[in-house]
Design a protein around this nucleic acid. Structure first.
Lengths: 226, 226
DNA sequence: AGCGCATTCAAACGATCGTATGAATCATAC
DNA sequence: GTATGATTCATACGATCGTTTGAATGCGCT
């Protein structure tokens, strides 16, 4: 039998991912982990501590690898700026690798990340964001260097769009893919698909669309026969 | 004093958005709405009924407008396919208009939508998805017509990416923008930014990136001096 | 064997939750 | 004015929650 501490972490990870954090009680967790109810408070100081430990365990190596990849690409680029696709690769590859290496457990974990991300009111949310502070600034800086003509506000927006696409995929990928009847290599496909989409989105030309024209079109056809 | 029913809806909307659904008790809601605790069960049959009513009230007109816009653009296009930017405009403009018309309340509501979307385990989630059934199929069909060379699986993925960027913006837009010190017209800018990004992402060329090459580069610089 | 420390255990605590109940209050029509 | 139906009210119920407690247990060390 494995350590009680890791049994608790595993059980919490699975239950948090499947039923949500608020909906999972300590009793659910300790029962699933075949541990005593008080074990959570003994080992982690409470539910919040357990939750923090759950995503500390997996997030720390993922983010370390992200920075290492970015470092590698930057030193490979030398004085040049890092190509967009490499920046996105450095951001996406580590969590995808986690998905493969940890299997079912990794997928569950990524769903927790997406959950916490969408719930800014969680008490854990501050600690959660702190994991991404360095990541954010480093990747924003790299993007800014590669997209010097785009003003930093827009760079940041598009970076967030790309993150959102990734998180959404982690949260919904399973459902989407079961609808589409995928072959076994679907993870590689999705990975490539995400990078292609984000690269194109990040370097989208500005002022390429005319919103006012569509507003005119909209008014023109208002009340047309349904 | 307004109707008790709408007072409850308003209070629930605000509290659900600010503190989360699970973290908001009926007592919080009825206190904020200056109504009796039992009023929720009387008018809505319970907490779930209240939540469903909360997003029914705003989601129904938004989605109706989405379909109306798509209809208008399709009849304007005649036999041609609808331009990508128009499809995205039809999808994005209604919720953005809601954001303006309902003010603070609209922003809160959109945050609830993002929340529910990220929480597939919610009891309400099925009912929530049903709101988007027609939207999804109609917009996927339009996208497929405009992007005939892209296989439907990829169209669906990219559509989801675009939705994710939009939802993420609704959930985090306030925080992101307060970081960037925006002028008053920032909503229009974000709206345009989202469409530009998504249009570019949706028509990204396939096989435009070489993942294997980056893997080689990664291995080459593995363990380089940190 | 016996000590010391880490861990596990059963049981309980106080708080809060969603829901139900039956009486009180209001509005409206006759 | 009073009967009727809709609404509001104070209150209570049973369940579940996170946390705490103090005793019991396991276990390496001298």
């Amino acid at each position: 039998m494995t350590d009680t501490k890791t049994r608790l972490l595993d059980a919490a990870e699975a239950l948090f991912a499947d039923h949500g954090i608020a909906a999972t009680s300590l009793r659910d967790i300790t029962t699933s982990a075949k541990a005593n109810l008080a074990a959570v408070n003994y080992h982690f100081g409470g539910k919040d501590g357990l939750l923090e430990a759950v995503f500390d365990r997996r997030l720390r190596p993922v983010n370390r690898e992200r920075l290492a990849l970015l470092d590698a690409f930057e030193s490979a680029a030398g004085a040049e700026c890092v190509p967009l696709e490499q920046i996105l690769y450095a951001n996406l590859a580590p969590p995808f690798r986690t998905l493969e290496e940890w299997g079912e457990s990794g997928q569950r974990f990524m769903r927790i990340v997406a959950r916490i991300n969408a719930d800014p009111s969680s008490r854990i949310h501050e600690a959660f964001l702190r994991h991404f502070d360095v990541i954010r600034t480093r990747f924003l800086a790299a993007l800014g260097r590669t997209l010097p003509d785009l003003d930093p506000t827009e760079v940041e927006r598009r970076f967030h769009y790309s993150l959102a696409a990734m998180l959404h995929t982690f949260c919904w990928g399973a459902q989407i893919d079961c609808l589409c009847a995928h072959p076994s290599d679907h993870r590689e496909r999705v990975f490539t698909s995400l990078i292609e989409y984000a690269v194109a989105g990040l370097q989208a030309p500005r002022h390429s669309i005319d919103v006012d024209e569509m507003r005119r079109l909209e008014v023109e056809f208002e009340g047309a026969p349904v």
